[in-house]
């Protein structure tokens, strides 16, 4: 049966009636599919890992807020994944409903295993969340309107999550024990997040920029990210291996471990922990 209640077509057009989004350049299309999978998986696994701590925050209020943030993150992954099926690309990565649904993950390795401590939750929300948001900002004016609109909506919701994450950093770093735990987690995660934006001049991002699908180069995204996260970490007395170069007006971060970097899955290859 193809009948729809009269008048609904305008509000919710049938899938078949949508015009397929076309990208002439195959490399750009491949990079776009990869970018969406990376955004979706990081939102999904961030939501999933945080949800496992949604009953164990230090305050009833931070716990209840944590549960709300979890819903948002999982919701974001669910609005991003359908775009993978919409694009004219054969065999795109499947949407995740459960974490074992697909063997290949496009999320940072820090999110692979359930978190062992609340400090992981704080580090993930303070470092992974803002990175995802920078990329969403880069696609918020994309020529691919369906992605741009969803990115704008997610970013609107993320204002609250960002404020929440900042509060968590100040809260945990208030005493020396908490600050040390956060420092340990940041040490584990920070370089991976710097790599996450890709090596400067990476072809995939360059082609997306040329096609009007993203607005920032990967170095612009990394610099934007550092400007967001470093001041808060410094305020919390958490050390990170970056320095602001006043003369060049940019963050300097030294050599990154590109030999351990998986460009497709946007993650550091970490040795599997033995059981």
């Amino acid at each position: 049966m193809s009948e729809r209640p009269e008048g609904t077509e305008e509000i919710a057009p049938a899938r078949s009636s949508m015009e397929e989004f076309m990208v002439e350049d195959d490399e750009a299309l491949a990079a776009l599919v990869n970018l969406i999978a990376v955004l979706g998986d990081n939102e999904y696994f961030l939501g999933r890992r945080v949800s496992e701590w949604a009953d164990a925050g230090p305050l009833l209020e931070s716990t209840a807020a944590c549960a709300a943030i979890t819903q948002d993150k999982l919701g974001h992954s669910r609005v991003l994944y359908p775009l993978l099926e919409e694009l004219p690309w054969p065999n795109p990565p499947t949407s995740l409903q459960g974490e074992q649904d697909r063997r290949r993950r496009y999320s940072v390795s820090f999110l692979d295993e359930p978190f062992k401590s609340w400090s992981n939750v704080v580090a993930a929300l303070a470092l992974v969340g803002p990175a995802v948001n920078v990329v969403l900002e880069s696609v918020a004016t994309s020529k691919y309107e369906n992605l741009a609109k969803r990115a704008q909506r997610i970013l609107d919701e993320e204002r609250l999550t960002s404020a929440y994450a900042e509060g968590l950093v100040r809260q945990i770093a208030y005493n020396e024990r908490g600050r040390k735990l956060l420092q340990e987690r940041v040490d584990e995660l920070f370089l991976e997040m710097l790599c996450w934006f890709g090596p400067e001049g990476e072809e995939g991002i360059e082609v997306l920029k040329r096609e009007g699908l993203v607005s920032m180069s990967n170095e612009e995204m990394r610099q934007t990210y550092l400007s967001r996260v470093v001041p808060l970490l410094k305020e919390a007395r958490v050390e990170v291996p970056v320095e602001w170069d006043e003369r060049e007006q940019r963050w300097e971060y030294g050599d990154l471990p590109w030999n351990e970097w998986n460009q497709l899955q946007r993650r550091l290859q970490r040795p599997k922990k033995s059981a």
Partner: peptide, 19 residues
């Protein structure tokens, strides 16, 4: 009501809890 360490945190908790 909510308990929070700063007015900003209180605003965030209130927004998320009383939704």
């Amino acid at each position: 009501n909510v308990r929070a360490a700063s007015p900003r945190d209180a605003a965030v908790y209130a927004h998320l809890m009383y939704d």
